Amino acid sequence: MTREFEGKVVIVTGAGSGIGEACAKQLAEAGAKVVAADMNLDGAERVVADIQAKGGEALPYKIDVSDPAAVGAMVAYAVTTYGKLDGAVNNAGIGGPLKPIADYEIDEWKHVIDVDLHSVFYCMKYEIQAMLKNGGGSIVNMSSILGTNGFAGAPAYVASKHALVGMTKNAGIEYSAHGVRVNAVGPAFIKTPLIDNALDDATQEFLVTKHPIGRLGRPEEVANLVLFLLSDKASFITGSYHLVDGAYAAQ
């Protein structure tokens, strides 16, 4: 891998496992200084230890992304520690319970929206402020194939991921002339701890049949696109939504 992120400072939320872990490791390998943020500090510390063992530079950070003050402190930590902020991967999220709308508890709905949608607004608010002071930057928000498709039993998750795509488009319009690019990525079902913990083997086997490519995706395949969108190679790409879905949405 080339060192195209040499000297860059990037925050990755949800970096303690899955897609976030793959993004953090690939960014560090490409030369970035990474703030690996996660609610699960043990996971973040494990990822950072792996990065450091390979000569990369990263620090763990415990974060509850649904707390706006905590998000502001996280961005301030990155800037104070490394001097600036060049990029961010707003990846932290939860699946929520699987049940139809009429059975969804109000508190369950609010929790999913807080973690999967409100947190991305908080992250972008403070990240963009820091990037504007630095002359620009690039943000990738982690949506989902369910940012455009529905999925029975996941109303809060689907609603949050649809809204995240709209918010990404708005940010792209608002800040492109100021040197800050904002894009969203929409993975289909990726083999991550989130999937493994939420879905049994039979359900995962069913989901495989929904992907014409014949398998679930891998975190590294999503990270490959994230790094491209963060990089200068994607300098004319902003306010857009990009699928990594094994032809899920093509059907």
Results as ranks from 00 to 15, higher is better:
N141K: 01
R181D: 10
I94P: 00
H111V: 06
A250L: 12
S240K: 09
K210R: 12
P68A: 10
V208Y: 12
K84L: 10
K133G: 05
H118S: 09
G43S: 02
L27T: 13
I145N: 01
G31R: 01
T81M: 03
P193G: 04
L207C: 12
S176P: 13
R215G: 03
T238H: 14
P193V: 01
G72W: 04
N40L: 14
A102M: 07
E57A: 00
K169C: 11
S176E: 02
S17V: 04
P187H: 13
G55S: 00
S235W: 13
S176A: 15
A250V: 13
A70L: 03
L85N: 00
K62G: 07
N91C: 15
I94A: 01
D107Y: 03
G179Q: 03
A58R: 07
C23G: 08
G93M: 01
A159G: 15
N134M: 01
G137K: 04
A32V: 05
K25Q: 08
Y175M: 09
V182D: 06
K8S: 08
L27C: 06
A177F: 06
P100L: 02
I213R: 04
M39L: 15
R215H: 14
L164V: 11
G136H: 04
D245R: 04
S143V: 14
L98S: 02
A69H: 10
L41N: 04
G153L: 10
V180R: 03
G56V: 06
